[in-house]
Amino acid sequence: MRVIGLISGTSADGIDAALVEISGQGYRLSWEFLGGLMLPYSPDVRSHILSVASGQPLSIAELAELDDAIAHAFANAAQQLQSQYGFADLIASHGQTVFHRPPQDSQLGYSLQLGRGEVIAALSQLPTVSNFRQADLAVGGHGAPLVPPVDACLLSHPDRSRCVQNIGGIGNVAYLPGGSADEVSLPPVLGWDTGPGNSLLDIAVQILSGGQLTYDQDGAWAAQGTPCELLVRQWLAHPFFQILPPKSTGRELFGWAYLEDCRHDAQDHGLSDADFLATLTEFTAASIADNYRRFLPALPDEVLLCGGGSRNLLLRRRLEAHLDPIPVITTDAAGVPADFKEAIALAVLGFWRWQGVSGNLPAVTGARRSQLLGDIHLGNVPQPSLNSLY
């Protein structure tokens, strides 16, 4: 079955799209990455997404307009991907997260992803799975992270334990003990959100550059500065880092307001712009390593990075320093393209939903039970025979 995975992370840079050939049953999969692309949002759409994600109010009519614009952008990404790499049987769309509230006490969590699956299905004329987080949230889970069970299928090693660390806007980890998945079960996987990934760095770069830059390429700007270790220790005292997994977070916590607090701290210490970026980079790397030491049963044999932050050379070097002598590489070295790993994972989640396979891991999300993840939208297409898609 040829499945398109579509996702835009909390950085809202644009849409990652991957076409994947998948076969097999349950958790025992064969797969091939056929191609991928990244389609940037228009400046207007990205600006609106970031405004909403930072808590700016908007009317229901404005929300509907943004929802439609994102759905059209996702459908366009699927169309462009097929024009380059051939047909697909199914689309799996994560959509664009604009709000995430973890569960607390007796209150269920809530997470809002824009980009309506039914619109994508109608525009693409392909069955589309969307709303992957909702079923897990409904049974007490965080709805995040979604990817660890896929990581277990694609990246587990029979003899070595691995941490798969995604560094998008928010960082999340999947801990994979040595072993392999079979058709009906996975190794005892752990996973949770580790805290900020690129979110604080990207916002800071936009502010410091007067809007001319959206990220610090290769960490080059931060590399010119010196991190303030006192501030790193102060920021690591944030209550989020003390919470036991399962846990999740988003820009609601590590976004504009938090960055402003960090900026005031940096000004109080007389940091230059480069020093501030160096300190934020060090904070991100230190927070990941701190999570591992606090919450893992043992440190992994190796760490595999993916997401945009995996291309930040300074961030990678600092994480290597914090975890030395553990090797820190990218998922490319393990056969999964780091730039498209999350989109590939969405394709697998969509495949599982089509097969009727549970996609969440209660041990990771905190849900009370396993759930089918995602709503299926057929659009104007008659439902294909399952046998014809394998």
Rank of each mutant, 00 (worst) to 15 (best):
R2H: 10
R2A: 02
G5E: 02
S11R: 06
G14W: 03
A17Q: 08
G26F: 02
W31G: 03
L34D: 06
S42A: 08
S42F: 05
P43E: 01
D44I: 09
H48G: 11
I49M: 01
A61C: 09
L66G: 04
I70K: 01
H72D: 08
F74Y: 06
A77Y: 00
Q79F: 04
L81C: 09
I91W: 12
S93K: 14
H94M: 02
Q96E: 08
H100T: 02
Q104I: 01
Q104L: 11
L108H: 05
L108K: 05
A121H: 07
A122H: 14
L126T: 02
V129N: 13
S130C: 13
A135G: 04
L137Y: 06
G141A: 15
G143F: 00
A144E: 02
A144V: 08
P145V: 06
P148M: 10
P149Y: 07
L154S: 11
D159T: 10
N166R: 01
N172C: 09
V173F: 08
A174N: 06
L176C: 06
P177Y: 04
G178D: 01
G178F: 03
A181H: 04
V184Q: 11
S185E: 06
L186S: 02
N198F: 02
S199H: 05
V205Q: 00
I207A: 08
G210C: 07
Q212G: 02
Q212I: 03
Y215K: 04
A220G: 00
Q224H: 09
C228I: 05
L231F: 07
V232M: 15
R233K: 15
W235R: 09
A237I: 09
A237L: 14
P239L: 08
F240A: 15
Q242E: 14
P245I: 13
Y258P: 06
C262S: 02
H264L: 04
A266K: 07
D268Q: 12
L271D: 00
T281S: 15
E282T: 01
E282R: 10
T284G: 09
T284K: 00
A285K: 06
A286I: 10
I288Y: 07
I288M: 13
D290W: 01
Y292F: 14
R293Y: 01
L299D: 02
D301H: 08
E302Q: 12
G308M: 13
G309V: 03
L314R: 09
L314T: 00
L315H: 00
L315M: 08
L319A: 06
D324C: 14
D324R: 14
D324K: 15
V328L: 13
D332W: 01
A333D: 14
A334P: 08
A338Y: 00
F340Y: 11
K341V: 05
I344H: 07
G350S: 07
G350P: 07
F351I: 12
R353S: 12
R353Y: 11
G359W: 03
N360Q: 15
A363V: 15
R369H: 11
S370W: 13
L373P: 03
D375L: 03
I376L: 15
L378T: 09
G379I: 02
P384N: 10
S385A: 15
S388W: 11
L389D: 12
Y390I: 15
